[in-house]
Design a protein around this nucleic acid. Structure first.
Length: 574
DNA sequence: GCCGTTTTCGGCCCGACTGTTTTCAGTCG
């Protein structure tokens, strides 16, 4: 993993540096390769050992050799010499409004190579004196610099979606818009959203844009035109609004939903089929005749593709699948019959009384809800001990007696010890309906040891679900370094489900690993990991995540009826 | 530098907005 990140970093830096040099096409080639390597789930050094680097899409002979050199020596001569030639800190290019051309200019003219030097030159007023720069450029670069310095984190979907929905509703309520929808990463339901894209139609564009720019939640107008305007809200969220004509609403939705990689692929396909595709429509190249635009589905259909759900539009094979009519029938929120990871107030960090959990589950129409309180490890976490398990089970049994249409499952989230054993005895585990096991300590074991540890958990006959398998916490720590090949195949053999933990700070497994799991025939289990009442809403986020991982209903435990779930849990392997 | 259900060579997505330009380059998505 670490090595892979290093490769990705170097390839991206090469792309940056080549862009500054003004080289054509190569930057994109390096960036594409970096992206492909970044999305690998196989062990990169194993691929190298197998001589299969060139099998990675967008990696050819040249880049394969470079990757090999990085893996062998942890550095790359070509990269080092480029850095010598252009000693610009890569962070400098993360500054908004400062692209490769301007970065080159301020380096050549003023010797700026770092954020600190950039700040000094902004203060001294030298930047604005350069040809092609002016007071506005200076101000825009200054703003961009501030954001990089604050290393503006991406926003979590769970925060953005409600805020964006409210804003969209306010626009709609103005009566100035005929139609408004989310596009961009928000529509694709990415778990981290850069900015909010809203797309719609309006009779009077000027008036509609004026209204948008004058919202009281608007802190700054970044740009304003009759088709596109951008604001930054007081909460620091960037919102782009685009107004298009009714006859191109569909193609605009397609275009602005992205992802960029998906769009590039789609346009390449359009060109090869004799079309031209832009946000206004799909046009026949020869006649210039518009063949689609009003409806998004038609854009895809005219290109001989099935309509592709936004969650899949990441250039992960969805276009080929759409052409072959092999797109997955994605799981829907209505397919979900229950939540399989919740904490009651029996967990020391849990705050939800059992009766509240019951009410919430009933409100959502669940058939079941797993009450999976923490187990207690050597007194650190105040959770269930072996004795506590007996009480837990009888408490759940008692609650179930009064229930109709909903059943609580007596469960536990056991802690995985350093050696892969659990902190409850087998005797206790077998009394429970469902056993989750999660790593909550010793996060930094080396790959082999961590893989061994997790395989031990998967092999444990009492464990039904491996909770938050990679242990990542967004903005806090990355995921474990694991041998996913082994892990997926063992999970399939032992019928151990891997969790899709829907908690926004975890989102673990992440989409690309879910997709791999699905391909490997592994069962997955959505859990909200609720500790407070409002966390139960995370289930929807879990479904989005599952969809982004190409999950069909049959891939998930949560779509099983109570009867089928019970028999899956009780089967010897499960 | 990669890639090929028209290609192993000759292509490589496309348009809006901004600022500084007096006709367009740079940046962004």
């Amino acid at each position: 993993m670490q090595q892979r990140k290093r490769v990705v970093e170097i390839l991206n830096e090469i792309a940056d540096l080549l862009e500054i040099k003004g080289v054509d096409y190569k930057p994109r080639a390096y960036r594409r390769a970096a992206r492909e390597v970044d999305s690998l789930t196989e062990d990169l050094s194993k691929i190298y050992k197998d001589g299969a680097l060139e099998d990675i899409p967008s990696v050819g002979k040249n880049i394969a050799e470079k990757i090999a050199e990085i893996l062998d020596t942890n550095r790359l001569e070509y990269h080092e010499s480029l850095k010598q030639e252009i000693p610009i800190d890569p962070l400098l290019l993360r500054v908004r409004n400062l692209g490769p051309k301007k970065a080159r200019k301020i380096w050549e003219e003023l010797g700026v190579t770092s954020l600190e030097e950039l700040e000094k030159k902004l203060e001294s007023g030298e930047i604005r004196k350069l040809d092609g720069f002016g007071p506005k450029s200076e101000e825009n670069i200054r703003k961009g610099l501030e954001i990089v310095k604050k290393s503006q984190g991406k926003n979590q979907l769970s925060d953005v979606l409600p805020a964006a929905t409210e804003l969209k509703n306010r626009l709609m309520d103005s009566g100035l818009f005929d139609d408004l929808s989310f596009a961009g990463s928000l529509r694709r339901r990415k778990y981290e959203v850069g900015d909010v894209d809203i797309l719609g139609t309006a009779e009077d564009r000027e008036e509609a844009m004026d209204f948008f720019a004058s919202l009281d939640t608007c802190d700054e107008v970044l740009s304003k035109g009759s088709t596109k305007s951008s604001i930054r809200t007081r909460e620091g969220l960037r919102v782009d609004l685009r107004i298009v004509g009714v006859d191109s609403l569909g193609s605009a939705m397609q275009y602005f939903t992205g992802s960029q990689e998906h769009n590039v692929r789609l346009r390449e396909l359009a060109i090869s089929e004799g079309y031209k595709l832009n946000e206004y429509g799909l046009y026949e190249e020869s006649s210039g005749e518009k063949v689609a635009g009003e409806e998004e589905e038609m854009v895809y259909r005219e290109l001989d593709l099935s309509w592709i759900p936004p969650e899949l539009r990441e250039d992960r094979g969805e276009i080929k699948a759409a052409r072959d009519d092999q797109l997955p029938q994605l799981v829907e929120i209505d397919d979900i019959k229950g939540d399989l990871h919740c904490h009651s107030d029996e967990s020391s960090d849990g705050q939800i009384p059992l009766e509240v959990l019951v009410k919430q589950a009933q409100n959502r129409g669940y058939s079941y809800l797993a009450v999976t309180d923490h187990a207690e490890t050597s007194g650190i976490v105040g959770g269930l001990t072996d004795k506590g398990v007996d009480e837990h089970v009888s408490r759940i049994e008692k609650a179930n007696r009064d229930l109709d249409g909903l059943k609580l499952l007596a469960g536990v989230e056991a802690n995985v010890q350093k050696d892969g054993s659990l902190d409850l005895t087998d005797n206790s585990l077998q009394k429970l309906d469902i056993v989750l096991a999660g790593v909550h300590s010793h996060f930094d074991l080396p790959r082999e040891a961590m893989t061994r540890r997790i395989l031990e958990v998967i092999d444990n006959e009492y464990v039904d679900v491996l909770a938050h398998p990679t242990g990542r916490k967004l903005g806090e720590r990355g995921g474990f370094d694991l041998d996913w090949e082994k892990l997926f195949s063992r999970a399939r053999e032992t019928s151990t489900a891997l969790e899709i933990n829907a908690s926004p700070s975890r989102t673990d497994l992440e989409d690309k690993l879910i997709k791999r799991g699905v391909e490997e025939g592994v069962k997955l289990s959505i859990g909200t990991d609720s500790h407070r009442v409002n966390h139960l809403d995370f289930l929807e986020l879990g479904v989005y995540l599952a969809r982004r991982g190409w999950c069909e209903p049959g891939d998930l435990l949560n779509t099983l009826s109570l009867k089928d779930l019970r028999s899956w849990l009780q089967s010897p392997a499960g």
